[in-house]
């Protein structure tokens, strides 16, 4: 049975003066027992304090400082960030975007196995989930592109990565991030850093050292996109047509692997 904290505090006070009295009168045996009792009382006080802390209503933390894993499952966090970007993205960018816009840390170490888990899930029960986190496919060999995550509900063309696609996807992501930032009432540190990361690497997007206005990023990214999209789209369409013609559902979502021919032509 736990004593109320106030009662404990009064008892600790009494014990302290008793210990002091015993020490000054030279009664060592009493002092030792009293000290042990004092320690027990202090421990009980610490415990009672912890209980109080648990019962108290949690003060809402400002969202930016809440660097804790979110309540959503990992795949939904990734899906949210990817949907915002609308292009295949590396885990690092997914983490950055999610942190900047939703204030939650995605545990990046778990992202490495995510695609494999999703593939296993899809193979055991195809299309059982509304979406899967899948691979982007390389345009030349329709193999899974290294280190990119995509969403299965996107058109196949969006998930193809040709030679120009890394740049096109980067610029498209920049436009999407900037559009999203424009809708925010206040652009804070995380979003500003993200904007600067995009703006610094697009000609004419940065308005100064460390700052990039959303409107400027959108304008500059669209200007550069104009010179790449035509060729890129033709690559993507051709590769997507090939993928549809030759690959099954699993292949279209998770890519094919190049295998050694020798194993099949052996005698």
């Amino acid at each position: 049975m736990a004593e109320p904290v106030e009662e404990l505090e009064r008892r600790i006070e009494r014990l302290r003066s008793a210990v002091r009295h015993a020490v000054t009168t030279g009664d060592r045996a009493t002092a030792r027992t009293l000290r042990a009792e004092l320690r027990r009382a202090e421990d009980a006080w610490e415990e009672a304090l912890d209980d109080l802390a648990d019962q108290a209503p949690a003060a809402p933390l400002p969202p930016r400082q809440r660097a804790v894993p979110g309540l959503l499952p990992l795949r939904e966090q990734v899906h949210t960030a990817l949907s915002l970007l609308s292009v295949p993205a590396a885990p690092r960018l997914v983490v950055q975007v999610h942190h900047a816009f939703f204030g939650e840390d995605v545990p990046s170490a778990k992202l490495t196995s995510l695609r494999r888990d999703e593939e296993r899930s899809f193979r055991s029960a195809p299309f059982a989930r509304p979406y899967y986190l899948c691979a982007a496919l390389t345009a030349d060999r329709l193999a899974p592109a290294r280190g990119l995550l995509a969403v299965s509900t996107w058109p196949l063309e969006h998930r193809i990565v040709g030679p120009l696609s890394p740049r096109v996807d980067f610029l498209t992501a920049a436009v999407r991030v900037a559009e999203h930032a424009e809708r925010l009432s206040k652009v804070d540190g995380g979003v500003a850093r993200l904007l600067w990361m995009f703006g610094a690497n697009i000609p004419g997007a940065a308005s100064g050292i460390g700052t990039a206005a959303p409107a400027a990023v959108i304008r500059a990214a669209r200007a550069e996109l104009d010179s790449h999209t035509g060729v890129d789209r033709s690559h993507r369409t051709a590769a997507a047509a090939r993928a549809r013609a030759h690959l099954d559902d699993v292949g279209q979502l998770f890519g094919t692997q190049l295998r050694a021919v020798r194993s099949r032509t052996g005698t």
């Binding site: 590396a90 690092r92 960018l93 696609s165 890394p166 740049r167 996807d169 980067f170 992501a173 995009f198 610094a200 690497n201 000609p203």
Partner: peptide, 9 residues
Amino acid sequence: ANGCAELLT
């Protein structure tokens, strides 16, 4: 990262 963004710049 990001399609060699920093390198291209």
